[in-house]
Amino acid sequence: MSLWDYANPKKFLTTSEKVMPALWVVSIAGMVIGLVWGFFFTPDDFRQGSTVKIIYLHVPSALMAINAWLMMLVASLIWIVRRHHVSALAARAAAPVGVTMTLIALVTGAIWGQPMWGTWWAWDPRLTSFLILFLFYLGYIALWEAIEDPDTAADLTSVLCLVGSVFAILSRYAVNFWNQGLHQGSSVFRAAAVAGTDTEEKVSNIFFAPLLVCMISFALFFIVLVLYRTGTEIRARRARALMARERAQA
């Protein structure tokens, strides 16, 4: 049996309902463990003090903000090429989750930035890119909401997602060019490579383990939310189709 079988709504619903309970438990437990571990059982950073601990919220949500958009892009491509309704609905379901993650990343970034840089907001390239990503999410969601016919909405949002992705990347480069900023580089994965060396720019092992737990459980949480929301979208779509048929028969 191939992966595409799950593109059948019924198959998707029965399968996702089987895996969702376990995913809910694992992802929520993982987040609780990771966050408690990170907040209370890691030492304060010698330079940043306890403020650094917001990293356990900031980094996973930032990661998922970008991955959610990537997932929407892939789902949009699948819809355009293969016309599987589940794929379009999954993209629709992922967008509000992605925008929430982006918002969390922005807010936690501001809260972290205040003690670190002495300002809530700086027009730093990374922050700015996230703000632009946030705007892209808003436009994408607004387009879904504005169009009555679900297939038309799926087509148009897919095209927007494709074009938007190109422009999001362009914006990232443009913003980098526009203002070289304060933000530290992406230090997490370099840390994984150079484990154990607690130099100031890298996240050391002792911080990294709970961070990894947080990132994995955020990703799982995202997946289970999208599965759940896709199920809801499928049922709503189904109800709509039934009503349209009733009108047509009447």
Binding site: F136, L138, G139, F167, A174
Partner: peptide
């Protein structure tokens, strides 16, 4: 209004450069 919301983020690179 929706048009503005969709188009303005796409204008970012052009505006910056």
């Amino acid at each position: 209004l929706l048009l503005s919301l969709l188009v303005l983020p796409l204008y970012v690179p052009t505006l910056i450069f």
